[in-house]
Simulated scan of single mutants.
Amino acid sequence: MRKLDNRGIAAFEFCVVAGVFFMLVFAMVDFGRYAITMQSLRHLAGAGARAMMIACYTPAVISNNSPAGCTGDYLSSTEKQNTAPFLYAGGLTPTIDTTSGGGMLTVTARQPGFAMLIPIWGTSLNAPSASTQVPFSP
């Protein structure tokens, strides 16, 4: 019986296992980056809501008048960067929007230029956003 030539088997097995292993490692890094971005956006939205309450909740608003004029961003760019420094990595800049309706003021923080590193996830996780709602009596 002739002995089979097994040269190159270890290299082939390494390629198969390494491909799956590195894909798994990059996926964990990608989802970790997404999780940190979402947590930073939640923190930034909370800080924006606090700044909006301090700036807008005047005695007229506390007397059950609608804070309709409370729209916009009440944090300076330095305050944003101190609150969530990770969001400024790679030259990206987060945005904060405030909307009102239904007895709630909604402060939304967005990261418009964010994209996942591995394109197999599609675009559903690109441009994440987080919101915080502040109730008021209309």
Rank of each mutant, 00 (worst) to 15 (best):
Arg2Gln: 13
Lys3Pro: 01
Lys3Trp: 07
Asp5Ile: 12
Asp5Ala: 11
Asp5Cys: 10
Glu13Arg: 11
Glu13Phe: 13
Ala18Tyr: 14
Phe22Gln: 03
Val25Cys: 13
Phe26Gln: 08
Met28Tyr: 05
Val29Lys: 00
Asp30Val: 10
Asp30Cys: 11
Asp30Ser: 13
Phe31Asn: 10
Arg33Phe: 08
Tyr34Gln: 04
Thr37Gly: 03
Ser40Ile: 09
His43Val: 07
Ala47Arg: 02
Gly48Cys: 06
Arg50Cys: 02
Ala51Val: 11
Met52Gln: 02
Met53Trp: 10
Met53Asp: 04
Ile54Ser: 06
Thr58Pro: 11
Pro59Glu: 12
Ile62Phe: 14
Ala68Leu: 15
Gly69Asp: 13
Cys70Pro: 08
Thr71Trp: 06
Leu75Ile: 07
Ser76Ala: 07
Ser77Gly: 02
Thr78Ile: 06
Glu79Arg: 15
Lys80Met: 10
Asn82Glu: 05
Asn82Ser: 08
Asn82Tyr: 09
Pro85Met: 04
Tyr88His: 03
Leu92Met: 09
Thr93Gly: 01
Ile96Cys: 04
Ser100Pro: 12
Ser100Ala: 15
Gly101Tyr: 00
Gly103Trp: 13
Met104Thr: 11
Thr106Gln: 15
Thr106Leu: 14
Thr108Gly: 07
Thr108Asn: 03
Gln111Arg: 01
Gln111Asn: 02
Phe114Arg: 02
Phe114Val: 04
Ile118Asp: 13
Trp121Gly: 10
Ser124Tyr: 13
Pro128Met: 03
Pro128Asp: 08
Pro128Arg: 00
Ser129Ile: 01
Ala130Asp: 04
Ser131Thr: 05
Ser131Arg: 02
Ser131Ala: 09
Thr132His: 02
Pro135Thr: 14
Ser137Leu: 15
Pro138Thr: 07
